[in-house]
């Protein structure tokens, strides 16, 4: 039996509206549970993931149903762009042609087909070693460098067999998203120069009150070309700082002021 510290829960996730569970910027996408971000602040309390599922799972289902009903009734349901669908289908099927040795349609770097399992294992190892439980800037920079290399290689991920229940193919498809999420985690953790909740930095061990009101939001830097961006060496995301809404006064009043000094910014305390 192997025993060791590991990643257990991710506080970050899909940016959602807390009341409707609707994802920001993606009409018709609703998210609840660990996949949604922002619900638990910097560290989830034990037992709260189940309450999260019950409360926000209900909201997500309710509003997804409402959304489907309303857009159907009014004829305003967004229609996916055919060109984007074709692009997505081609991207999904590419691992099969990589195996057959067909020339790539884009000017991607040439090389032998890559084993998706090997790439997955290297990605896991890099993230575990460099963006793990206790982090520091140089290690996360090194991780971003490795991610760039893995992204280039993942473009050549090849699989055998056909489309029916093919785990190698599933992994090849998943790799794209794993690499994207890994980059989001590494970039945001590098940007946040403090330690808070589940985020611990050896080079910034203290909690910094100035960071409390800030969320870091990752977006694809090129949403249109995100599926098959030919220049895979560059980072794929844009990082933004977003200020959180102030804490409601009635909630603030529940705490002793001395207790809040540790957490709140000076402006908040003087208000």
């Amino acid at each position: 039996m192997e025993v060791g510290p590991t990643c257990h829960y991710v506080m970050g996730g899909v940016d959602v509206d807390p009341d409707t569970a609707a994802a920001t910027g993606v009409p018709g996408l609703f998210a609840a549970g660990e996949v949604a971000g922002g619900m638990h602040g910097s560290n989830r309390l034990g037992g709260n993931s189940l309450s999260d599922l019950l409360v926000f799972g209900r909201r997500a289902g309710l509003h997804a149903a409402r959304y489907a009903q309303e857009t159907a009734a009014s004829g305003t349901r967004p229609v996916p762009d055919e060109a984007q669908l074709d692009l997505a289908a081609a991207e999904a099927l590419r691992p099969f042609s990589a195996e057959a040795g067909e020339p790539e349609e884009t000017a991607g770097p040439a090389g032998p087909p890559e084993n998706p399992y090997t790439l997955h294992q290297e990605l896991q190892q890099s993230m575990n070693d460099l963006v793990g439980i206790i982090r520091k800037a140089e290690e996360m920079e090194e991780a971003l460098h490795r991610l760039a290399g893995l992204r280039v290689r993942a473009r050549r991920a090849g699989v055998e067999g056909h489309r029916q229940f093919n785990p190698g193919w599933h992994l090849a498809i998943d790799l794209r998203n794993m690499l994207l999420v890994s980059e989001c985690v590494a970039r945001a953790a590098l940007e946040r120069t403090e330690s808070r909740g589940g985020h611990t930095r050896d080079d910034c061990p203290e909690m910094d009150r100035a960071w409390r009101r800030l969320n870091l939001v990752c977006r694809l830097s090129d949403p249109s070309g995100g599926l098959a961006a030919p220049d895979a060496g560059h980072g794929q995301i844009r990082l933004e700082r977003r200020e959180m809404p102030p804490i409601r006064p009635d909630l603030l009043n529940l705490f002793e002021k001395d207790e809040l000094v540790k957490y709140l910014t000076d402006e908040e305390l003087t208000q």
Binding site: N115, P116, Y117, T118, Q121, V159, E160, G161, H162, Q164, F165, N166, P167, G168, W169
Partner: peptide
Amino acid sequence: LQATQAPDLAV
């Protein structure tokens, strides 16, 4: 086995 010899082995 999947990772090294049979990538499309369904399990």
